[in-house]
Design a protein around this nucleic acid. Structure first.
Length: 349
DNA sequence: CTCCAGTA
DNA sequence: TACTGGAGG
């Protein structure tokens, strides 16, 4: 899910185009992206794409085509995978699991009723990434020559570290959590710009660019206060306070400066006094302020794609259409010969 | 989500 | 050439 601070971020977000990102190294939250593909790449009846053996392939389709678009546009993606979740996250993980089971039941019900919209909606909510899907997505990226970084715990924390080290230019995720982890730059809707229809009108989803220092300046709060706001609203590591959304959290932090002070003032929200366990709060804050990250990750290198392996994997193993895959790979090959040409040109100058 | 063939 | 809707696996 991630912390909901979209309203607060609104005023500092900028729109960027693919051209603005030329030759930039962008770290992508792999789980976040794969889940998105899994939820969205489905048929009208809610069934995900599958190969002949019944293995789900929606995530591979999304990953493959989108990554090729990045390469074709001279963007250098790095995929960062989550590792072992913090013990504080386990409650949330269990809750999500329960919700998925619930969604499956609701999907069956909708199916019986012939409610097509409902079936699709609940089917999306059942999306699960298993270890084999994760492994295969890494294999595909490896064949494509894209660097992959395994985070010891939170991928978002790892990305924040890499951004702030200057090893990558920005973090790409739909969640705002990298901001809580302190990443200076965040990109949202990071994909080729496309119009998407909502109802009967089409809306274009721009790539959003958010600078953490700008956000803190605009809100006139510190990084620590941003984290405390996140805790009040709710993050993956703490459920938040019922009745407190982004607006209230911002007002409270602005007025009282800290959760500790908010506690001391016995403030009421929805008739209940806010009384948070400071010890727990400190633990959550510590996850954001001192996260477990891998500092000696492999140097980020983009290798030549192994075209044969990709074809064998997608066409041979997972029943992707030969025409589409070869077409996409041809775009890559063309890109390769172009860049070879420019480096030759440079050499002869 | 992204691709691609059909349409204006 | 730009756009749209249905299919992809």
């Amino acid at each position: 899910m991630g912390v909901k601070i979209n309203e607060l971020v609104k005023e500092v977000k900028k729109v960027v185009t693919f051209e603005n990102l030329l030759n930039k190294k962008i770290a992508i939250d792999a789980f976040n992206t794969l889940y998105q593909f899994l939820a969205i790449i489905r048929q009208r009846d809610g069934t995900p794409l599958k190969d002949f053996e019944g293995n789900i392939t929606s995530h591979l389709s999304g990953l493959f085509y989108r990554t090729i678009n990045f390469l074709e546009n001279d963007i250098k993606p790095i995929y960062v995978y989550d590792g072992k979740p913090s013990s504080l996250k386990l409650d949330i993980i269990k809750e999500r699991k329960d919700r998925k089971v619930e969604a499956k039941v609701k999907m069956e019900e909708a199916k019986k009723k012939g409610d097509i919209v409902g079936v699709r909606k609940f089917a999306q909510a059942t999306s699960r990434l298993d270890s084999n899907m994760i492994k295969e997505s890494m294999d595909l990226l490896d064949y494509m020559g894209i660097p992959v970084v395994q985070a010891p715990s939170e991928g978002e924390a790892q990305i924040a570290y890499m951004v702030n080290q200057g090893d990558v230019w920005a973090s790409a995720s739909q969640d705002y959590d990298t901001l809580l982890f302190g990443a200076k730059k965040l990109l949202r809707n990071f994909a080729i710009n496309r119009t998407r229809k909502v109802g009967d009108t089409s809306v274009s989803l721009d790539i959003e660019w958010i600078l953490l220092p700008k956000l803190l300046e605009k809100l006139d709060i510190t990084q620590e206060q941003l984290i405390e706001m996140g805790i009040l609203i709710g993050t993956d590591f703490f459920e938040g306070v019922e009745g407190i959304g982004q607006k209230t959290a911002f007002d409270l932090i602005t007025k009282y400066k800290s959760i500790k002070k908010i506690n001391e003032n016995s403030l009421k929200v929805r008739g209940k006094i806010i009384d948070l366990d400071i010890e727990v709060i400190e633990k959550v804050k510590n996850i954001f302020l001192n996260p477990s990250v891998e500092k000696n990750y492999q140097s980020l290198k983009w290798k030549k794609p192994n075209f044969d392996k990709i074809e064998e994997f997608l066409i041979g193993k997972h029943n992707f259409s030969e025409g589409r895959v070869k077409n996409a790979l041809d775009r890559l090959k063309k890109k390769e010969s172009e860049s070879m040409q420019t480096s030759l040109d440079r050499f002869f100058k």
